[in-house]
């Protein structure tokens, strides 16, 4: 468990001050995957680095596994750091060591015996699927393979927490999926709490349970991934969500839809409980009107579906009104106007 209690971090910089983390209070529970999104410079990395004291807070408390970490000694800190694995956007592997050597290094720091090191390294390389690369050097690996080594190395000392700074941002979409899958597996098989930061909403959607949105050093929104995706409150959260849902209708597209479709156009939003039922067809059948789906998407978050569709209803005004009335008792329905966001 990680708790931030009114944490501030101010960088003094030749007279200029940067308030990188501003009054952040946040709790990450044991065993969950927590994601923090925000634009570049929002303070995500700084917040993450406070967890293992790569940065010290200017004020406030960071509590990791019950320890208030700014008050502990250097030696205790080094011990604590072995319980917190960290992976990086640029992997940060030791170029002078083989894959095996990289994974073995934290175990050697922890003064494990040769046999223990060997067993653990082999187990981890098997876990990340790189048994056959043990003798290679990082420069001989692809980005995805490098990150697998990074993950194996971070897990070497069996940490309870894994922190990830943009772990997939340097990877292509396919490799990103693989690494996210691996992180999920880390979380499930070893029950490791994962705190990750990213500017890619897709990462959060794929693996996180809860999330927070950061802007200008502050946490402006937090909640379950489902809550924030289906009902974002801040402008920044809305931007992030629509970057992924692709649910914004551009004026140009709307114009074209209007030209080709004479019926009335509505946005229909399905949430947790009803997105798997054939509501649209049932209601349309009941009132004998025709509908067609013009645009939109259906997404899965944490095993629940979320649909956001642009639908045209064709029929007399009275009939369409009745259909809309009935639909409104089950799902969210809004008429599409020219300036909708």
């Amino acid at each position: 468990m990680i708790t931030f209690d009114r944490v501030n971090k101010v960088f003094g910089f030749e007279g200029r001050e940067v308030h990188a983390v501003k009054d952040v209070s946040l709790t990450i529970h044991q065993g969950e995957i927590f994601g923090i999104v925000g634009f570049s410079g929002a303070g995500k990395s700084t917040l993450l680095r406070l967890v293992n004291q790569l940065e010290r807070p200017t004020s406030g408390k960071v509590i990791v596994n019950g320890l208030e970490i700014s008050s502990i000694s250097q030696q205790e800190l080094r011990k604590l750091r072995r319980r917190i694995g960290m992976i990086f956007q640029s992997f940060n592997l030791f170029n002078s060591r083989t894959v095996y050597g990289n994974v073995a290094y934290p175990l050697k720091l922890a003064k494990k015996s040769k046999k223990e090191v060997d067993d653990r390294v082999k187990e981890l390389l098997r876990f990340v699927g790189l048994e056959d690369k043990a003798g290679q050097y990082p420069e001989q690996l692809s980005g995805g393979q490098k990150q697998r080594v990074g993950i194996a190395r971070a897990l070497a000392t069996s940490p309870e927490i894994l922190i990830c700074d943009e772990a997939t941002s340097a990877l292509d979409p396919e490799t990103t999926e693989e690494i996210l899958h691996l992180l999920k597996k880390v979380n499930e098989e070893y029950n490791i709490t994962i705190l990750l930061i990213t500017h890619e909403m897709n990462v959060v959607r794929r693996i996180c349970d809860r999330m927070a949105v950061m802007e200008k050093g502050q946490v402006i929104e937090q909640g379950s991934v489902y809550e924030i995706f289906t009902n974002p409150k801040s402008k920044t959260a809305k931007n992030f969500v629509s970057s992924l849902l692709n649910d914004k209708l551009s004026p140009k597209l709307l114009e074209r839809i209007r030209r080709d479709h004479s019926g009335r156009i509505y946005r229909v939003i399905f949430t947790r409980d009803n997105s798997s039922e054939p509501i649209l067809s049932l209601v349309a059948q009941k009132y004998q009107i025709v509908f067609s789906i013009l645009y939109g998407s259906i997404h899965e978050f944490q095993d629940r579906l979320f649909g956001n569709l642009i639908v045209e209803f064709r029929g007399s005004d009275v009939e369409v009104d009745r259909v809309v009335e009935e639909l409104k008792t089950m799902v969210e329905v809004r008429e599409v106007t020219e300036h909708e966001s």
């Binding site: 293992n52 790569l54 800190l77 080094r78 011990k79 604590l80 750091r81 072995r82 917190i84 960290m86 990086f88 640029s90 940060n92 592997l93 030791f94 170029n95 290094y105 934290p106 720091l109 922890a110 190395r153 000392t157």
Partner: peptide
């Protein structure tokens, strides 16, 4: 040397 590499070692608890 990439400072990130030194940081990785620090994050592992290296003195």
């Amino acid at each position: 040397i990439d400072p990130g590499i030194i940081e990785a070692a620090q994050a592992m608890g290296a003195s």
